[in-house]
């Protein structure tokens, strides 16, 4: 009798847990589902009250309009260029410096590294004003360089890579040295390949942040042809604030790359976010 009671309690508890989680998940997913379904609706159907999840028929036209009525393709390409640069360059500079901080012995190393750590808590807004003034002096405002150059180096990325290289056994590096490798060769041939999963985590995290970044392009770009996706999309929203189906279609396309990356590497995403939170 007692056992049956415990079992029944367990089932009830399970039902409650899944019910709570499902309600929560629905709250998270409904806006996305609505975005997707609205992107296939006709213009009239989004104004229907009470709102309906599905339209009468699928309107592919919305997806054609995002490129015919806006420079959407150019926004997408600009975002791709900036993201590709930032991911590749930031991973390279972070991995190299992370390795140096972890495994090379030089004067002032710990002091410099602590300086890097200390800047991680500095809000972005503290540096963006004078960075903007600097960029405008070099004539780089309104070019993609203004987004790519400052993001080429990251204290957080350097910290993350160092945390990994610290775990590489010294014996490995010593034996490479015996075989005549200089520190740079040891790094490239031996340690860099070992860091694959940390590099993947950093790359994905970096890609997501750059692809989604709204503040930086808002500050630096004012020529519509230079716009990246977030700011281009925001401009579309400003111009055609009531053409919801086209805006939703554009949103779906904008989310797509990050979503694919997320579905392929959910664990790396979660790890990256956790590292970013636990950086102190």
């Amino acid at each position: 009798m007692l056992k049956a009671g415990i079992k029944r309690n367990k089932i009830i508890r399970g039902i409650i847990l899944y019910a709570i989680l499902s309600i929560g998940a629905a709250t998270m997913l409904v806006p996305f589902i609505w975005m997707l379904s609205s992107s296939f609706k006709s213009l009239n159907e989004v104004f229907v009250y009470p709102p309906k999840l599905f339209g009468e028929k699928i309107v592919w036209q919305n997806y054609k309009q995002i490129s015919s009525r806006f420079n959407f393709f150019s926004y997408f390409c600009n975002s791709a260029i900036v993201s590709a640069w930032v991911v590749v360059v930031q991973v390279l500079t972070s991995a190299t410096a992370g390795y140096v901080f972890a495994k090379l012995n030089f004067k002032g190393r710990d002091k410099i590294f602590i300086l890097y750590l200390a800047t991680m808590m500095v809000p972005f807004h503290v540096t963006v004003i004078t960075n903007f003034l600097q960029m405008s002096r070099y004539g780089l405002v309104n070019t993609l360089w203004s987004l790519m150059l400052p993001a080429s180096v990251s204290a957080f990325g350097t910290f993350m890579m160092r945390q990994f290289f610290i775990t590489v056994p010294n014996e490995l590096i010593e034996s490479a040295k015996m075989d005549g490798c200089n520190p740079f060769m040891t790094f490239i041939m031996i340690c860099f390949p070992l860091a694959k999963s940390t590099i993947a985590t950093l790359a994905i995290f970096c890609f997501m942040n750059t692809w989604n970044d709204y503040f930086t392009p808002l500050v630096y770009l004012n020529d519509e042809r230079k716009y990246t996706l977030p700011i281009g999309l925001a401009a579309m929203k400003g111009m055609y604030s009531t053409n919801w189906p086209v805006l939703m279609a554009a949103s779906v396309v904008a989310v797509f790359p990050v979503l694919i990356a997320f579905l392929l590497a959910q664990d790396a995403f979660v790890k990256g976010v956790m590292m970013s939170g636990l950086k102190d």
């Binding site: 989680l21 929560g24 998940a25 998270m28 997913l29 806006p31 996305f32 609505w34 975005m35 609205s38 989004v46 104004f47 229907v48 009250y49 709102p51 997501m208 692809w211 989604n212 709204y214 996706l229 977030p230 700011i231 999309l233 925001a234 929203k237 919801w244 805006l247 939703m248 949103s251 904008a254 989310v255 990050v258 979503l259 997320f262 579905l263 959910q266 995403f269 979660v270 976010v273």
Partner: peptide, 28 residues
């Protein structure tokens, strides 16, 4: 579930603002 809850965190605020502005629309 973890993926579902995490989805908003990886989405651009611009996209989120478009959807939520529609959700908040007083008429429809």
């Amino acid at each position: 579930f973890r993926g579902a809850y995490f989805l908003p965190s990886i989405t651009s605020m611009v996209v989120i603002s478009i959807v939520w502005q529609w959700i908040y629309n007083p008429e429809y």
